[in-house]
Amino acid sequence: MYAMLSTAPGGPETLQWSAQDRPEPGPHDMVVAIRAASVNYPDTLIIQDLYQMKPPRPFAPGGEIAGEIIAIGNEVTDHEIGDRVMALTGYGGFATHICIPAASAIKIPDDMPDLDAAGFIFTYGTSHHALKDRANLQSDETVLVLGAAGGVGTAAIELAKARGARVIAAVSSGEKATFCEKIGADATIVYGKSSDKEDQIEFRNKIRSLSGKAGVDVVYDAVGGAYAEPALRAIAWQGRYLVVGFAAGIPKIPMNLPLLKGCQIVGVFWGAAVQRAPKAHLSNVAELFDLYSAGRIRPRIHATYPMENAGDALTALKNRNVLGKIILTNPSS
């Protein structure tokens, strides 16, 4: 087997496509031949030692895979060799094979191809947990999505629309705005790339002009940085501000704003929620599969790369040049 290994902290250029011994499953494990793996923002952080999880080196990044079971442990009863499965792996997914706990695998629906399966759970799971469990988004509410053209952002647009909400998509270019409109956003804002006060005020005023005097009910923020404070200033009374990620850096929020707005700043740590409430996670996954089968959500695949070109894919994601998802593929494993 081969894996894209991180041998020292650094950027995508430090990864090395290296031969490895194929793992053998323990009693409760399975070996999966990876057909496709999703590229997600945490993959850019974990190789720099900037993520919550710090695996011992050498390791391969890649926290989300789809593939076929080729070996199972003698205590595994819920899966069989030949089953198609998707899984959240944390790391290790940028490879041709991986050994995972059988309990972490979810059978792929028959109507879902490998490319969609590889890019499904992380983004839709995160956004469904955020909007449903953390924000309790209602059909008569308005949600502002920051970083709306990325993986979790596009999922948030689709899922908010599926809940009957109105969506304002905030993005960094006209191309991204057009993309978000095509997938269902009701309105778009192109924010400036500067962090100066005038740009922040202009961004806040654009949000208010689109949301009305009351402001937005929910802010879905996977960006952070200089965009956080003006978004919070445009939130409605008793709104919910979802902290999803920090692609533009960790913001400093004046804490008088939540008091004046009567609003909540709500953390969205989906990975921890999956571990702490696995039954609720599986219930959410079942809901997402139903939405997929009904054609109401679809992973928006920006590009596919061969697995050995994972470094190029990570660079594109890091530079925020992606509309939707990037998927890595293994033609044969």
Rank of each mutant, 00 (worst) to 15 (best):
D199K: 11
A234L: 06
A277N: 15
E75P: 00
T126P: 03
L282N: 13
P56A: 14
A19R: 12
A103S: 14
S6C: 15
G63C: 11
I250S: 00
A117P: 04
A214C: 10
D290M: 06
A156W: 08
G93R: 04
P23F: 09
G164Y: 10
G93D: 09
L259Y: 12
P251K: 09
S333R: 07
P331W: 07
A102K: 03
A148C: 05
S195E: 13
P55W: 12
P278E: 04
T77K: 12
D312F: 07
R35V: 00
I253Q: 10
A117H: 01
E229F: 01
D186N: 14
L328C: 10
P27V: 13
L242H: 11
V76K: 03
R204K: 15
L146N: 11
S293Q: 14
Y191N: 09
K279D: 15
S6N: 15
L137T: 05
I207F: 09
A95E: 05
D199N: 14
R233F: 02
A303P: 02
R134C: 13
Y220C: 08
L282P: 00
G125Q: 01
I235T: 05
K54Y: 03
A148S: 08
W270A: 06
Y124S: 06
G150F: 04
V31Y: 06
Q52S: 09
E24P: 03
G11Y: 09
V171I: 02
V218P: 07
L328V: 04
T154S: 15
R134M: 13
A294E: 15
G192Y: 02
M307R: 06
A165M: 10
D140P: 00
I326G: 07
A165N: 05
T123P: 00
K197D: 15
M53E: 14
N256W: 11
G249A: 07
T7V: 12
D29H: 04
A185W: 10
A170T: 10
E13P: 00
H129I: 06
V268E: 10
A60Q: 02
S293T: 15
P113H: 11
H79E: 03
G11H: 05
H28M: 09
P254W: 00
A8S: 13
R166N: 10
G125L: 02
L50V: 03
P254R: 14
G271K: 09
E80V: 07
I70N: 03
Q16N: 12
T14R: 14
F122I: 14
P25F: 01
A160E: 07
V145F: 08
R240Q: 09
S6I: 12
T142L: 00
V322S: 04
E13R: 07
V244R: 08
A155P: 04
N284T: 12
A118L: 02
P55H: 09
L5K: 03
I207R: 03
L242R: 07
V244I: 15
P58W: 10
V266K: 05
P278W: 10
K206H: 13
T142Y: 05
W270F: 10
A66M: 02
M307F: 01
I34Y: 01
D133Y: 11
I201N: 12
A277H: 15
M4F: 11
T142C: 12
P254G: 12
L15C: 06
Q264P: 00
D83F: 05
Y191P: 00
E75I: 01
